[in-house]
Amino acid sequence: MPANAISTNVPVLQLTDIRKTFGGITAIEKFSLDVHPGEIVALVGDNGAGKSTLIKIVSGVHPPTSGSIAIDNEIVAMSNATMARARGIEVVYQDLALADQQSVYMNMFLGREPVNRFGLLDRRRMIAETEQLVKELDVRIPSAHATIRDLSGGQRQGVAIARATHWASKLILLDEPTAALGVAETAKVEEIVLSLKSRNIGVLIISHSLDQVFRLSDRICVLRRGRQIGVRKTAETDKNQIVAMITGLQEH
């Protein structure tokens, strides 16, 4: 078997029996899910279902109350976002977490700026790597020097995804990446998300648009009030079934 085939059999992310409580509130219970390299898994559910909480558990913001997280078959304990990033997990937050008055390239390297041998910022390298990635992902921005606040919503989202792509070696978590975008911009961002498959990165995406979920995902995981209702292969289900699962008109 070629090496590639072996690696795709090992899930990049394996969540087992995750449970999360906030005081008396159970936000997540009995949640188990695998995400494989090059696979896009969509997380759907009503408001308050626990989607964002789940993303925060995987990104190290909230440690789970119980259950295990494995990266490449290795159980990991992540108590903060820095640890998750060190494991190759990147998050595109709902608010994007971009520094608006800084350039695109400074945002790409925010907190991880390379320096030359004099300890000074290696701008040339940051600019070159930004330009290359932006070209590969076809994020249409005027230049790596552009200031974030001069970009459109879609361009900003593109920059945030490009940053995640640059640093993620295993997994990218996207929390409603197109919620604030227009139709054309949404299409562009979806194109970028799809192109992540060829990089062998696992993607876990939250979306409120079922049309989008069906366009992008390989599998769909449905949450309702913190409970995992089920996981379906996108090709083997349809919107009616997913809606029924989300709203509770159908169990299992």
Binding site: V91, L96, D100
Partner: peptide, 15 residues
Amino acid sequence: LATGDNARAAAVSGI
């Protein structure tokens, strides 16, 4: 600069 620009973005970036 990042801290003054967007403290939350700076924090989630490990600053």
